[in-house]
Simulated assay, not measured.
Amino acid sequence: TSIHNMPMNFSQTLASQVDKQRQEIDRYISLQNERLKLALQEQRKQQLALMLKKVEEKATMLLRQKDEEIANARNRTMQLEEFTRKMEVESQAWQRQAAENEAMVVSLSNKLQQLREQARCLNSSIGMEDAESCCYGDEYPCNRENKEEEDEEETGGSSRETGERKRTTMMVCRVCNSRNACIVFLPCRHLCSCKACEAFLDSCPVCKSAKSATIEALIS
């Protein structure tokens, strides 16, 4: 009987050992699965953290670039505003200069017109004096020829010389006293120099004010 029971006991023992080994293997596999899950979760967390870090770095870099662009835009805006203010000031200065030049041109035109009228008046006065001298000679027929000569020498000659002297004195160059004055000095507006002498002058010969510019007057 004991001999017949031995195989049965052995099979039971073997079965229990197999069950025990299976249980241990199952526990080991389950433990490894848990460890693998934990490792995968940790790896996933690390990957997510790395991705978040890269995204944050890129976002920070983009924000920094945008801040720099905004700062540059502000600087350009300030520069443009400053340039605009300078242009407005310069425009106002040019407008004032243009108004002053326009007023100066009007004044010079008026002065030239006055000079032309004075020249015409001198010419007419010279003609009247010549006519009076001729009439004076006709009143004495007996001495007509002599009077004409004397009138030409005395009355006519002196009147012409007086008129020419007045005209020459008014229009002569104040430097060389020989050529006609045709240069207007600015800003004093004195017509007092010829073109040849003006090149050597730094100030007006009349009022001694510093010369800023000159204009050539074409007087007919």
Rank of each mutant, 00 (worst) to 15 (best):
M128K: 12
M171H: 07
N75E: 08
R174A: 11
S133N: 07
L80F: 05
E139Y: 10
T169W: 02
E82V: 03
N123W: 09
Y136D: 01
T60G: 04
R76M: 12
R179N: 15
F185D: 07
E154N: 14
G156M: 11
Q113P: 00
Q114N: 10
R116V: 06
V106N: 03
W94G: 02
M78P: 00
S178R: 15
Q114S: 02
Q79T: 09
E154Q: 12
M104W: 12
E149I: 03
S109R: 07
N101F: 04
E148R: 07
L122Y: 08
K86G: 00
L62G: 01
E152I: 12
M61W: 04
R160A: 10
S91E: 03
N72Y: 04
N177T: 15
K147L: 06
A73P: 00
P187C: 09
L122S: 09
C135W: 10
N123E: 14
S133I: 04
L80W: 01
N146T: 04
D151Q: 04
E88Y: 00
N123I: 11
L122M: 13
E81K: 10
N123Q: 14
L122G: 06
T77E: 11
W94C: 08
A131L: 13
E164Y: 05
R76A: 05
F83R: 05
Q113Y: 06
V184A: 15
M78F: 03
M170V: 05
R64C: 09
N146H: 03
L63S: 09
F185V: 13
R160I: 07
E150S: 09
A99W: 08
P187M: 11
D130R: 12
Q65C: 01
C182N: 15
P187Y: 11
M170K: 04
H190C: 05
N75G: 00
D151L: 02
R144G: 02
S159M: 11
R189M: 12
